[in-house]
Amino acid sequence: MSSRDQILSRVKANKPPQVKLPDVAVFEQGEDGAAEKFTEILNAIGGGVYYVDDYQELLSILRDNYPDHGRIYSPIPDVKALTDCVAIEGSSGHQFADVEWAVIKGHFGVAENGAIWITGDLMEYRSLPFICQRLAIIIKQNDILPTMHDAYRRIGDSTYSYGAFIAGPSKTADIEQSLVLGAHGPKGMAVFIMKDDSVYS
């Protein structure tokens, strides 16, 4: 008998009696307008929140607040047009290790924990939001949900090959519980909330 069949038959023989699954929809809060809470939590975990009108304003905030910036890379065509950084055709994700800012779109934010849901199709390369030195994510003003239950309701049965909730910069407290931002991934994270949905194309 293969290990697979062995394991399955032992599990089948040893499993406890049937129990019904509990309802998780009761935890959904459903209401909008959680932007204030989102900002408060994201600030607490080391991220910044900016309200902007368009991509131009976003880029000038990056340049003004972080004057010694290096390369800015974005898979968003409108942002790409405003920066001079291009990806090498057909290469892997390794090339972004020295990108100072990666600018990508997110689907929505979650107020209770400051996380943003992003799927592979918005990243161009899966490594991009992790390997860059700093990460900027754009979401629409109305796309902030109260809890993780609301988040999974929104995600539903959508298909993606890869997706991640990202909440703030990469961090560690492994050395005597001293919090250090920038463990392996981004040292900083900025969330840009687009005031006008129509600009977000």
Binding site: I45, E112, S161, Y162, G163, F165, A167, K171, G185
Partner: peptide, 17 residues
């Protein structure tokens, strides 16, 4: 675990690149 609201990364791996 640590009193954080969520880990920085909660990554959902579904298909290989």
């Amino acid at each position: 675990a640590t009193g954080q609201p969520i880990t920085t990364y909660s990554s959902h791996f579904k298909s290989p690149q």
